[in-house]
Computed example of a mutant assay.
Amino acid sequence: MLIDLSGKTALITGSTGGIGLAAATGLARAGARVVINGRDADRVETAIRHVLDAVARSDVSGVATDLASAEGCEKLIQAVPDPDILVNNVGIFGPKPFFDIDDATWDRFFQLNVMSGVRLARAYMQRMMDRGWGRVVFLSSESALNIPADMIHYGFTKTAVLSISRGLAKVAAGSGVTVNSVLPGPTMSEGVQEMLKDMAEEQGVSIEEAGEMFVKAERPSSVLQRPATVEEVANMIVYACSKEASATSGAALRVDGGVVDSIVP
């Protein structure tokens, strides 16, 4: 399959590292004009250079803004008024005991992980539908289905994303616009590597070995028995954004390594 997104503009939120940067690179490799987003201008510039190094002569730009507020989202909308592809990747995670999660933390996770995608889809989808073509992808997680006891606030936001994505696919029915969710499992992003650093040092093993130990201990249902790479998750995102994925909408596309113990997607 040759995925060709020449002439399409793809906006990927939270794309200065991890899955977002891998998705931006993959979409650039498929020929799309890519817009990087992150909070820090220096990191945005570094991500742009990364994409240019990986994909020579690619068309890549960036917008630095924090999408945890309506004002931050509006800044991005003004800078990028009419993308063909929207990848709602931005999000935060982190373990915390339920009884220690205050209202401010609940709201911070909700505003960034959920409302950023809502605001951007509301701004962009109608124009996609009017044109008769568009792709919207929400990054959910296997934690949307297997709510982690130590990250209930995170799992809740990823379940919400599934509901929003499915509902928006119905809103866009018959328009040529598809809306899907991608559900990674444990993935070796920078954030996860940082989380595993102490384990690796204590056990005297590499980060990769610590990742395998973590998956086997904390996600024993995993069929893969290791974390995915960010590129493996990005491959699913690129496919969901492609013209070839025209019959896939309203779907929850799992890249969880089989962590969710189900024979249906």
Rank of each mutant, 00 (worst) to 15 (best):
residue 65 T to G: 10
residue 66 D to Q: 04
residue 66 D to A: 05
residue 67 L to K: 00
residue 68 A to C: 11
residue 69 S to R: 01
residue 69 S to F: 06
residue 70 A to Q: 13
residue 70 A to H: 11
residue 72 G to W: 11
residue 73 C to L: 07
residue 73 C to W: 05
residue 73 C to A: 11
residue 74 E to C: 06
residue 74 E to R: 14
residue 74 E to S: 12
residue 78 Q to A: 14
residue 78 Q to I: 12
residue 81 P to E: 08
residue 81 P to Q: 07
residue 81 P to G: 03
residue 82 D to K: 08
residue 84 D to G: 01
residue 86 L to A: 04
residue 87 V to I: 14
residue 87 V to Q: 04
residue 88 N to M: 02
residue 89 N to V: 11
residue 90 V to S: 08
residue 91 G to K: 05
residue 93 F to I: 12
residue 94 G to K: 01
residue 95 P to W: 09
residue 95 P to S: 14
residue 95 P to N: 12
residue 95 P to R: 13
residue 97 P to K: 03
residue 98 F to N: 07
residue 100 D to V: 09
residue 100 D to F: 13
residue 100 D to S: 14
residue 101 I to F: 08
residue 103 D to V: 14
residue 104 A to E: 15
residue 105 T to N: 09
residue 105 T to Q: 13
residue 105 T to D: 12
residue 106 W to F: 04
residue 111 Q to C: 11
residue 111 Q to S: 14
residue 112 L to V: 07
residue 112 L to C: 06
residue 116 S to E: 06
residue 117 G to L: 08
residue 119 R to T: 05
residue 119 R to H: 07
residue 119 R to K: 03
residue 120 L to K: 00
residue 121 A to H: 05
residue 121 A to P: 03
residue 122 R to G: 07
residue 124 Y to V: 06
residue 124 Y to M: 01
residue 125 M to I: 15
residue 125 M to Y: 08
residue 128 M to G: 02
residue 129 M to Y: 04
residue 131 R to E: 11
residue 131 R to S: 10
residue 132 G to F: 02
residue 132 G to P: 00
residue 133 W to P: 00
residue 136 V to Y: 05
residue 136 V to G: 09
residue 138 F to Y: 14
residue 140 S to G: 04
residue 141 S to T: 12
residue 141 S to L: 02
residue 142 E to G: 12
residue 143 S to I: 10
residue 143 S to N: 14
residue 143 S to E: 14
residue 144 A to R: 02
residue 145 L to D: 13
residue 145 L to V: 15
residue 146 N to M: 14
residue 146 N to G: 07
